[in-house]
Design a protein around this nucleic acid. Structure first.
Lengths: 208, 208
DNA sequence: ATGTATTGTCGTAAATTTACTACATAAGTA
DNA sequence: TACTTATGTAGTAAATTTACGACAATACAT
């Protein structure tokens, strides 16, 4: 049973909304908040939570890194991704990376309550739309959208590049060698058949 | 005095959070919600609101268009932009376009409550940071947009950069030394107070 | 099950970009 | 007008990024 929840999102209003909603659904659980990855990890280290509701695109960290540590602190914890990314593209990626659920911010209050209810019980959730696309996910992934050509790591790095981070910054953030990040960049450009950062921005904007 | 509010955002949790927060601060006001521009306009047409809290990046419409119509339906209405865009870059643009306030989603619960309180009373709000940059903004240049700060040459080069050209390419095209182009780039970044190419793209898009 | 393609990761050398510094000229201002 | 600031332009050294080449570990298809 879920008893302690940590809500993490850089937008204050989102944290507020989530906390209010959770308290309404489960008045008895303890809900706390964090606004970036580093704070999440800090709080989790001190006292592990049963459920983490994370906006993946937060400052000071990355999902992959956070995931590893959170599971280390409390292996049985649940992680729900709460994101504004297109769920049909990203949901499965995160689930495969270990998340226990994916909920899009576009969701209505009702959907969100359903999702939370479900997670409070069995700890798993994806929307029906995602389930549907999952059916033919494995088959049709040959073509589909351009972004599907990229691996998770590549997508993560593409996003960081688009946000204006330099190779060096990315390498530090992810604890990788600069040349590793450079290779990712090269591969991303190759796969998407582009040759500049502005091109990448266009492609990514197009896909979300 | 504000009596009827329409909260518009495509993210359900944001609407939920805002409505909860408003009801807590002013239990007596009527708050309703909409998830895109077309719904906002439809609702506003039926019954005008005193205050519109709008996320500018919503589907089915644009701020400029919505602004015109909303003011037509009820000229004295207030419009507050509630956005995740960087306020120091975007706030003034929206204020100049007629918005009555700009509030960033990164704000904490407390800050947001302060802002809302203020808006309920005098119908105006921008963060102190924005006010500061406003002072500087008005003082430095008559009014105009950021691009006015750039010289013609700088604008030309900014556009080439945004189109994805490298320093080397630009230098060849313009028959300049690479370091000259580099200096232009540095000055452009300084003047616009940005630090990456993606930032430049945003600024230029804004001033299209 | 086995070979092929993809992914994650580096190292090194070469190419490009940045950070400063400089300076002459044009513009703007007191 | 004299003074200050903005603009167009480079040079050099340092920092960053790119191009390639490698290689182990997966993943995938036959």
């Amino acid at each position: 049973m879920v008893e302690k929840i940590l809500v993490a999102d850089d937008h204050g209003i989102v944290r507020y909304g989530l906390m209010m909603m959770i308290r309404k659904i489960r008045p008895d659980v303890l809900v706390e908040e964090a606004q970036d990855y580093s704070i999440v990890l800090e709080m989790a280290k001190k006292t592990p939570y049963d459920l983490y509701i994370l906006d993946v695109s937060m400052p000071n960290g990355s999902f992959l890194n956070a995931y590893t540590l959170l599971k280390k602190y409390s292996p049985q914890c649940k992680i729900l991704i709460f994101s504004s990314l297109d769920e049909e593209i990203y949901a499965m990626r995160y689930i495969e990376s270990g998340a226990d659920g994916f909920l899009n911010k576009l969701a209505s209050e009702q959907e969100m309550q359903n999702a939370l209810e479900k997670i409070f019980n069995n700890g798993k959730y994806v929307s029906d739309a995602v389930k549907d696309s999952l059916v033919f996910y494995k088959k049709s992934k040959s073509k589909g959208r351009q972004l599907d050509q990229l691996s998770n790591r590549e997508i993560a790095i593409a996003n960081m590049l688009v946000s204006g981070k330099s190779l060096k910054e990315i390498s530090q953030e992810l604890h990788l060698h600069v040349s590793t990040v450079s290779t990712y960049k090269t591969r991303i450009f190759e796969k998407l058949q582009i040759q500049s950062l502005p091109d990448l921005i266009k492609v990514l904007d197009l896909n979300n």
